[in-house]
């Protein structure tokens, strides 16, 4: 009798061991260290000072604002919640990825993936992000990293002003062709203006702050 019971328990034990090992290994593997967007993720309870909308058209030739200048530099005041709207323009896969500093760092945050930016022309996809640290960011598409790349400049003092959110996004990227092009943009009264001189590859050569 004792022998019989022992055998039954042994039989059930094999099944239980399998289930236990599955649970153990699954927990172990799923708890692997992962790097989540390298500090770009918004901390909770961030103060939101305002909202602004940015619409970008995704085209393999470059990001544009409805056939405007390609890869515009985005000026965003600090602590503003930015609602990005990306409109598919050419039916190719794109992503909207940002990073503090130059691109292709290990710490990047993909706001919109190829799955979200569907390859249906005219489809709009949305993502919001709050830039909580001032500095120069890069935004690009990981599928077309050489053509679809631009800069985001997050201004630390402009947020104190009575800035109109749409005014902060000035379309002041001027054409490289016309050297006599006048820069004109609507700026808040007291705001920090950062001028950047870029070469033809959109690499910033010098910057100055007025």
């Amino acid at each position: 009798m004792v022998e019989k019971e022992k055998k039954s328990i042994r039989g059930a034990a094999y099944g239980i061991i399998i289930i236990l090992l599955i649970a153990l290994s699954l927990t172990f593997v799923l708890s692997a260290p992962t790097q989540t967007a390298g500090g770009l993720t918004d901390p909770s309870n961030l103060p939101v000072k305002g909202y602004m909308n940015i619409t970008l058209w995704a085209d393999a030739a470059g990001w544009d604002t409805n056939h405007g200048p390609v890869n515009p530099t985005l000026y965003i005041p600090l602590d503003y919640m930015v609602n990005f709207t990306v409109i598919e323009e050419d039916g190719l896969p794109h992503t909207l990825t940002i990073n503090k500093g130059p691109k292709e760092d290990s710490a990047t945050l993909t706001l919109l993936t190829t799955g979200q930016i569907t390859q249906i022309i005219g489809h709009k996809s949305h993502a919001s992000y709050e830039f909580f640290e001032p500095g120069v960011y890069t935004y690009w598409c990981t599928v077309h990293p050489t053509t679809m790349v631009g800069q985001v400049i997050v201004n630390s003092t402009a947020s104190n002003s009575t800035a109109n959110s749409s005014a902060s996004l000035c379309n002041c990227v001027h054409s490289n062709n016309n050297e006599f092009n006048k820069i004109s943009s609507l700026l808040p009264l007291q705001s920090l203006v950062e001028m950047a001189k870029a070469n033809i590859n959109n690499q910033v050569m010098t910057t100055m702050v007025l």
Partner: peptide, 13 residues
């Protein structure tokens, strides 16, 4: 879903 949901931002898993 097309975009990772279970492993969102932890795609390496």
């Amino acid at each position: 879903e097309p975009t990772p949901t279970l492993f969102a931002h932890r795609e390496v898993l």
